[in-house]
Amino acid sequence: MSYIIPKESYNGKVLSVDFGKGNNALTVGGGNCLPFLSFEGELPHPPVIAYEIQDTVPEDWPDTVKNIYKDVSANPVTWAQYCQNELKAKALALRLVSTHPDRENRSTEDVAKIIKEVLAAIEVPLIILGSNHIEKDASVLVAAAEAASGSNCIIGKAQEGNYKTIVAAALAHNHKLIAMSELDINLAKQLNILITQMGFAKEKLITDPMCSALGYGLEYTYSVMERIRLAGLLQNDATMQPPILGDVGMYVWKVKETVASESDVPEWGTLEERGIAWEALTATGMLIAGTNLLIMRHPKAVKITEQTINELI
């Protein structure tokens, strides 16, 4: 009997979102089938990995990843240039952790200055992230959006508690926007609806359903992402069609498996390889579930994930 390939017919399509300017601009999303199943659809834009950089020395990162950047991380500009020029980053994600009230509580004026300096020093597209402090992010991201006006950045993350001002700023300064909710497909949907009701086009949104590290709830993120993709593609649910973000590095580089030394846990093997594998495998899991844009920290993990993407497309 001859074999007939069982193809799924999809009704919807993932929206494509571009960011950055000129030759280095990138586009994510745009596919009309489940991840990597190009035998039954078109997947025009492979997933993109952005290197995470911060606006202050990353004292809280474990040595495995902190040491890589020790000569450049004192200044976000040198850090950004290092990632772009030496590591060949295709995109960068600047996390403004120092604005958090528990860190340096840096002012919005400082933020504007940093953003302008970083943007002047790089050609690749930039993602600008707050410190995940709901109230502070509302003012920080507004200042960041203004400082980056015209650079077509992705800014975030807008959450239920602060989306209004951030959406207005992204709208005014023509940026793309990350909408983040906590591991629940209905919350993700609801936030996307609230944001589009403010007149923000769904074609400019990125959904972050919240990442989880391998071993620390990865399966929840995995299934929420799969369900979002299926709702967008099979049911043509327009609120579930933005590209998906996997903010991998920040969830991975704090769990015990990326921090505990081999002498503490001999049965876990060498720490450096373990940490890199933890970030790479978390990223691979996210890709298979439907992530279009990844934010990662360790160059070797990025390289492995890029090789995996190249094998998958």
Binding site: L214, E219, Y222, G269, L271, A277, G285
Partner: peptide, 20 residues
């Protein structure tokens, strides 16, 4: 089958085979 590799792969397998 290095130890670090086993731990990572075992964990991924365990995560995805958890009863949702």
């Amino acid at each position: 089958i290095e130890k670090w590799k086993n731990l990572a792969i075992f964990t991924l397998r365990q995560n995805l085979y958890t009863d949702p």
